[in-house]
Design a protein around this nucleic acid. Structure first.
Length: 552
RNA sequence: GCCCCUGUAGCUCAGAGGAUAGAGCACCAGCCUCCGGAGCUGGUAGCGAGGGUUCGAGUCCCUCCAGGGGUACCA
């Protein structure tokens, strides 16, 4: 990336200035580049002189002048200038910008890829909703976040494993199994009551009906305990399959569906607990086993194994993270959780530390609440009360592209209102269509060129000097930087904003610059730019998990 | 009470400690002899309040106000 090259040039200039005694030998800060707020300042700006001011006791403008003098001329940079109060501004050469179009065409659909990781592995765990019922709208947010982040990390060069943790072993599952069995009995005309806090949703009745349709009433003729387990197991399979199908609708997929139960069956739960105990982080109080997290600065200890001998879900999570870091040796683990798990963050990090793992290898993203509205009416989603606005319902109403774009547009930290009525109403007049329209328009231009038999492979991109052309190229050059920044900061919400910017630049270029014209030199050059834009737009949409339509 | 997140334009949201705070929607005024008008060009309007750190704060720290979430031997 040109950005990194400029940073290197600055680093060398600063080192050289120190070697020549023009700057005192202080430790240099990390050099960063910004995009200036106004294009008249150029393409990149460094505030290094301002940052050095205090350490070297010199005027920023003087520091800037010294550094600029030591910067060599390069093929990319047109001009380097000093601006008050102490910025160094870089302007890129038009000819270099033009030939970047050829670079994009050469890279094709791989454009934007980075090699940040040196082969390190990262696991992204997301959704991981208890398989006790269908996904609701709020789950969609985590799903889209995880799915998109995985794509970007992959593009940034990490070996990514996308994972869904199937909580199939806990208390909630038992409640679900008993709820399902009760519905099964009721459907067969038997007296039965839902357990306290049972799952009341209609879907439980539907699953019971399906089981009856498929296997008849055979579970009536076995002991209740066995019947609950067997009916429950069938229900579990069905719910997981339904969750999978719902996620599929939104193009959210996984490499691994990890079973919580396997942690117990495979002995990893025991290993993790033993390790914690060996390291002195467990304590027995009041008949229960606790994680002594106060020793690690937590507010309080947490129960691992209840006094009745049953492990808490927290204990499962300890084993799961032991599995992630120790057994599978992921270099980095990213968990995407809902706001209701916020309290779980610090103790999970404490556990990782207690297991002897650097807690910075565990990153947890909390997706804040999604409130549902229909018009002005707030919909309170509660799976157990059966009031669900399902994710499927939403996707079928507005489509996966609108859904993904909408969820992605807000940062994970911000709560969001999802107005179902508005989402549908806006689906014909919203940024999603604006961006996709740009792609379809490009496809249309390229079809026209093809119909006319124009071969633009030899187009001379040096001819691209119109401000609208250069502005579009500058936008195109931002994608690699975006991939890098999202991979480092885990903030994929910049993607939709970038997509809109890029589309705007393209539409503006299209208005100002006739592409297919009588000009036999300019036409192929512009067709190259159009083709490059198509590649970048399609890649951006692809990273967001959206379609890039040839026609609309 | 304690912990986490959030307060930016009428609305929905962006905003690498940097230069004159940006988009979309809405509203107003323009633009179709021409590659897709689902488009383009312009206009209106804003950092919850108060301190502090800094050469420089929407961004960091403190206090307050407002909204949401968490604070179980639930997950």
């Amino acid at each position: 990336m040109i950005k990194n090259k400029i940073i290197e040039l600055l680093e060398k200039a600063a080192a050289e200035a120190q070697a020549q005694g023009l700057l005192p030998p202080v430790t240099l800060p990390e050099i960063t580049l910004e995009h200036p707020p106004n294009e008249r300042f150029g393409d990149y700006a460094s505030s290094l002189p301002l940052r050095l001011e205090r350490a070297v006791h010199m005027k920023p403008l003087d520091i800037a002048k010294i550094l600029v003098r030591l910067l060599p001329a390069t093929e990319e940079i047109e001009k380097v200038s000093v601006a008050p109060p102490g910025f160094i501004n870089f302007v890129l050469k038009n000819s270099w910008l033009g030939c970047q179009v050829d670079c994009v065409l050469a890279e094709g659909s791989g454009y934007g890829n980075q090699e940040l990781s040196k082969g390190s592995s990262v696991q992204v765990e997301y959704v991981s909703v208890n398989p006790t019922g269908p996904l609701h709208v709020g789950h969609g947010r985590g799903a889209i976040l995880g799915s998109t982040l995985s794509k970007v990390l992959d593009a940034a060069g990490y070996a990514v494993t996308k994972e869904y943790y199937v909580n199939n072993a806990g208390t909630q599952m038992q409640v679900f199994y008993h709820s399902l069995y009760a519905r099964y009995l009721q459907a067969l005309g038997r007296e039965a009551e839902l357990p306290a806090n049972g799952y009341q949703g209609e879907y439980v009745k539907e699953i019971a009906q399906q089981i009856i349709a498929e296997t008849g009433d055979k579970f009536l003729r076995m002991p209740a305990e066995q019947a609950v387990a067997e009916v429950g197991n069938i229900g579990l399979q069905k719910v997981v399959a339904a969750i999978r199908a719902d996620l599929d609708l939104m193009c959210v997929d996984f490499d691994v569906w990890f079973s919580e139960q396997s942690l117990f069956d495979g002995g990893q739960y025991q290993k993790a607990m033993s390790l914690l105990a060996e390291r002195g982080y467990t304590a027995v109080k009041e008949g229960a086993t606790w994680f002594a997290s106060t020793a690690l600065g937590e507010d309080k200890d947490n129960v691992l194994v209840r006094s009745n001998g049953a492990p808490t879900y927290f204990a499962s999570d300890v084993a799961y993270h032991y599995n992630k870091f120790v057994e599978r040796k992921f270099d980095r683990v990213i968990n995407i959780w809902g706001a209701d798990h916020q309290g779980h963050v610090s103790r999970m990090k404490a556990v990782v530390s207690a297991l002897g793992i650097d807690p910075s290898r565990l990153q947890i993203i909390i997706g804040q609440m999604v409130s549902l509205k229909r018009g002005d009416v707030l919909v309170k989603a509660s799976k157990r009360k059966g009031e669900i606005v399902t994710l499927r319902e939403l996707v079928e109403e507005v489509g996966p592209d609108v859904c993904r774009f909408f969820f992605l547009s807000r940062s994970a930290d911000a709560q969001m209102d999802f107005d179902l009525a508005l989402a549908k109403e806006q689906s014909e007049n919203n940024p999603v269509y604006y961006v996709q329209y740009a792609h379809a328009r490009i496809a249309s231009i390229l079809r026209l060129a093809q119909e006319k038999g124009i071969d633009f492979s030899q187009g001379d991109t040096c001819l691209l000097t119109h401000p609208a052309e250069l502005s579009l190229i500058r936008k195109i050059l931002l994608l690699p930087e975006l991939v890098e920044s999202i991979a480092l900061n885990l903030e994929p919400h910049h993607l939709p904003h970038y997509a809109q910017d890029l589309a705007t630049s393209f539409h503006s270029f299209y208005k100002q610059c006739r592409v297919v014209s009588d000009d036999e030199a300019l036409t192929p050059a512009r067709l190259k730019l159009v083709q490059a834009t198509k590649i970048v737009l399609a890649r951006t949409l692809d990273l967001m998990g959206m379609t890039a339509p040839e026609k609309m």
